[in-house]
Design a protein around this nucleic acid. Structure first.
Lengths: 210, 210
DNA sequence: TATTTTCCGTTGCAAAAGCAACACATTATG
DNA sequence: CATAATGTGTTGCTTTTGCAACGGAAAATA
């Protein structure tokens, strides 16, 4: 997520000022938080990687979002409307700052620096989230596994400004992110290699098409 | 989109105050606007229905969002990252208010009432958009056409607080919204009827499962 | 380091979805 | 009102995807 303000300083303000916060450390595979209706939690991933994951009634797992260092998440950015279970799972050891609001848009009484920065930047932060979500929708509306893969690769390529990049996911997780069957995705990956679209060495993909 | 403030009054302010605006009338199937990079247009649908539509390279059409009376749209809510063509098509005769920003978060010089209301409410408005997008992602991550249909129906049912409701789309458009083949969707609809999940009379669906 | 667990890569088979085509109904439009 | 355009409903066939299962590689863990 790209932001237009200094997120490092923001985090510093957050850590130093407002009292209603908690810092916690998680090990890999632990549940960082569960999204709960009518709560407004704001979380900052200080270190590590985590995924926002949903399990549906058929037992399918979907990776809704992938978070890395400095990512902001929590119900603030995800108004819950259904009763699906949404949880954030640590993909590596993680350090997370938690902050709970009654109303995210109201400043706290002490009028601390953190809140000032937050309320100034929250619209932009949420807008960044909107961008992410729209990208995700664009991926998901692609009709075939092949197009989803190519779409996702092209996105990573654009981000890294290179035709070669590491996947931020294991292949198993990538399938859950693209919402396709893993083995079908593997088959398609093989075909993409055979058809000369990509090269794949371990977790590194290189795009070969112009 | 549900908002927490008086959108009718907001629109009134919009119409009466700020000068940099335009009101236009469109007939069915006309293009209301095309989303353009690095522009921040804010549009309000005063009357009628419209869809945000994307055409991909394979010629597939996707309905990204569906707008009805009082909906807000425009690049403000959709940061463009890819070069797909995104356009808003009038589905009926429409009246639309346009407003163009250099920077959506800066107040205009005259400090008009519209801008005041807007900057106060923009975060909430964007948050509502986030909710919509998340719901859409939830639909799109469903693995089968059946689950997409049932998921969408259940959503409409929740909104209308009734197990019976009108589809806001033609069936052709519904397929484009759920990102599935129309004929396959029709087949699935028939099966849902045969299996006793739904009843369908014209555009009206009734859910029969508990 | 030995052992368990997770992930990768693959395959055969079944199920689902897409494609193309068509007849008919409904809705716009000259 | 006649005609054109669009939407609905259906079907046969093909392609894609999902499911289940398995062996081996890699990584985590005791």
């Amino acid at each position: 997520m790209n932001t237009n303000f200094d997120i490092e300083n923001f985090i510093l303000d957050f850590s130093n000022s407002c009292q209603k916060k908690q810092k916690k450390i998680f090990s890999k595979n632990e549940v960082v938080t569960t999204y709960i209706k009518n709560r407004n939690q704001l979380c900052i991933l200080l270190d590590g990687n985590a995924d926002l994951v949903r399990y549906d009634l058929n037992g399918n797992r979907t990776i809704v979002e992938h978070f890395s260092k400095n990512a902001l998440f929590g119900e603030v950015f995800y108004t819950i409307t259904t009763n699906n279970e949404l949880l954030v799972e640590a993909k590596s050891n993680c350090t997370v700052l938690f902050y709970s609001y009654d109303d995210i848009f109201h400043k706290c009484r002490n009028n601390c620096k953190f809140h000032q920065t937050l309320s100034e930047n929250l619209p932009q932060l949420i807008l960044n989230k909107v961008t992410d979500l729209n990208m995700r929708i664009e991926l998901l509306t692609k009709r075939s596994t092949r197009d989803k893969l190519l779409g996702y690769f092209s996105l990573l390529s654009t981000r890294k400004l290179s035709t070669s990049f590491e996947l931020p996911f294991s292949l198993t997780d990538l399938a859950d992110y693209l919402s396709v069957d893993r083995s079908a995705m593997m088959r398609e990956l093989k075909l993409l290699k055979e058809d000369g679209f990509i090269e794949k060495i371990g977790n590194r993909i290189t795009l070969l098409y112009k």
